[in-house]
Nucleic acid binder design. Sequence first.
DNA 1: ACAAAAGTGTTGCTACTACACCCATGA
DNA 2: TCATGGGTGTAGTAGCAACACTTTTGT
Lengths: 245, 245
Amino acid sequence: MNRSLPLTAGKGALIQDAVQMVASYPKTALTVDCVIFGFEENELKVLLIRSDLQAYKGLWTLLGDVVRESEDLGDAAYRVLRERTGLNDIFLEQVQTFSSPGRHPGGRVTTVAFYSLINIRHHRLKTLDNEVHWHNLQSIEAMGFDHKDILDVCHQRLQRRVQEHPLGFNLLPDKFSLRELQNLYEAILDIKLDRRNFRKKFFSMDFLIDTEEYEVDVPHRPGKLYKFNFQKYQRHQRKWFGIDF
Amino acid sequence: MNRSLPLTAGKGALIQDAVQMVASYPKTALTVDCVIFGFEENELKVLLIRSDLQAYKGLWTLLGDVVRESEDLGDAAYRVLRERTGLNDIFLEQVQTFSSPGRHPGGRVTTVAFYSLINIRHHRLKTLDNEVHWHNLQSIEAMGFDHKDILDVCHQRLQRRVQEHPLGFNLLPDKFSLRELQNLYEAILDIKLDRRNFRKKFFSMDFLIDTEEYEVDVPHRPGKLYKFNFQKYQRHQRKWFGIDF
DNA sequence: ACAAAAGTGTTGCTACTACACCCATGA
DNA sequence: TCATGGGTGTAGTAGCAACACTTTTGT
């Protein structure tokens, strides 16, 4: 190649190759689906809508949407979240991509699954389209498309992450009692925990701030309320290594 | 809707809706990229080729290919692996999907990243197209597309997984010494480990089978060779729970 | 004999489990 | 006064980190 050619001309020609190449590839529609977890009445919940599609009439599905041209995956997922819940700047994690040719009755649709955690009490839903509703995770059976699989995979991811990162706090009020925190973990992990050991664990991590406030309107001795010290957690360097099959 | 219509007719009509809907969505090309890790001379390596694209002339890229119509993601990734290495039935894990609109100079291309682990010594490469080569992971700098990001994300995933599952054995010969095993972990995790504690750890897990054989052709006292007991590992139920931020 | 890596034990510390009683509050 | 959950401590155990010397083999 002649190195004295203007760079722009050369570059234009080279990119043209790539454009032709990409144009020859098979194409698929691209969507995001968000598994939005919430927590209320000591139950882990998930936000679902009735399927848009006649083919899945009556079945519940995840909140999703098409990824727009020139829109990033994360941006699309945040948009879905924002349009439904009005929330921004919330934890959101990409989990897995589902692309079985038969997963959508309308042709091949590739979907990228995300999950997010939001505090049900602190946010009213922005729209009530498609009967959007919080569902108890335990009670969910059939869903449209392969959304039950997606939900299960995201739930497993959540179970794992919540043990390694303080994500769970996104599901609680700013101020919470240790009982609430324990109920949250028990709901997410679907196990029972020893209360004393649970407290010791969290106090020893030393990321809880004692607000000096107490629960109100509870029919028993009120518990202390705490906040999570995100600042201190940020500064904390996670120790690394520990083989454990 | 008239419920006495033949089911097929009804169903056909419903799917037609979906087809029209999907047809109206923006489309993207879909590819898979495989980060194929190997281990040799106490170094973690990765299999790369020279970019097909003139725009990235001279740069190294991951092994990838277009996902065919009606081909599943995992199938496509296995196909790439098979076409390059002749290997089947190897560990392969989906990691993350990359879809920034600008990541490919030829237009929007969504790629799903996988990683895999293979034993370099036991398999000759099937083709030598595009100067396919094993590269020392430490020595890799610039790569084409966003492949360096993809590589880094896959390496992090590997570091995590290898501490929780006995994946590393896929990179070793059937029979290996504990020194080799430790070198492998040190290379993947990029840390030094205490030899005695490392041995104790693995012996106490009790998944190693003593072959009663020894290394040969080593210029020092030969070490015992072991196999990994995959059967026993399979039966072993992973214990659950342990919050640890 | 020397070089090089294999192989081995002990001690202290930390972190987890299991478990039972008294306390504060609202009804 | 009772019911309900809040709050606390201890003893036993398991697992991890740190650490140095002897053994075996090839050259």
